[in-house]
Amino acid sequence: MNSTPTDTDPGTGAGLGAETATAALALADDALILSHRLGEWAGHAPELEEDVALANIALDLLGQARILYTLVGDEDELAYLREERAFRNLQLVEQPNGDFAHTIARQLYFSTYQRLLYGRLATGDGPFAALAAKAVKEVDYHQDHAEQWTLRLGDGTAESHERMERACTALWRFTGEMFQPVGDGDGLDGVDRQELAESWLSSVTAVLRRATLTVPEGPRSGAWTAGAGRQGLHTESFGRMLAEMQHLHRSHPGASW
């Protein structure tokens, strides 16, 4: 493929400005893709109670994604008919589940970010305020779930400690992206990214320390200057994930379900 599929003109949906639409799409993609990954756990969780908990989080995220997509256009068109390069989600959320420690580390990093971001959006009067006010309650719980498990895995057995260290370190390099601009402009109601990044780091650091885990060192984003998920550049497993997610919908063009 030598041409780069561009956005499916996300600015037309509900009269949002192009920057806001791009931001809505990015947040929606984050929520959908993470929800999809969590959905892969169904029937595989370490304990039945945890199957129920992960599904709850996945359902919250899917609900958020659907509201956000609707701000921009048709939810199913956006989810099922865009190419990989048009997805704006963070690379963090598309990372394969790995073991339970990887899933929890991903949850900790992402839900802390989402809680801080939505908390700020909820107090503004921008297009995301209403959605964020509802979502922040859900996300609070997701963050709590991740924190509880981080403590138990970090401060549990030698094996769990080691697995959790490994997971936190492995995903560390995807965490810088959360604080970079979404698209060209900044459709996120002028949330102060620098301040968001600092709050995130101090919150995550506090949890990791309590969990007796070391705060990873090293770069928090890749060296590729072309960018990452927000620029539609993803990791290799993402294409396969999308192929699975989209194939049925795409096999029956125009069908309703």
């Binding site: 304990e47 109670e49 129920v52 908990a53 709850n56």
Partner: peptide, 20 residues
Amino acid sequence: SLHAPDAEMALRNARDLYTR
């Protein structure tokens, strides 16, 4: 009833299971 390693997790599991 349900299973949980401690009271904090029991509360959360109960929330997810019995009040969804």
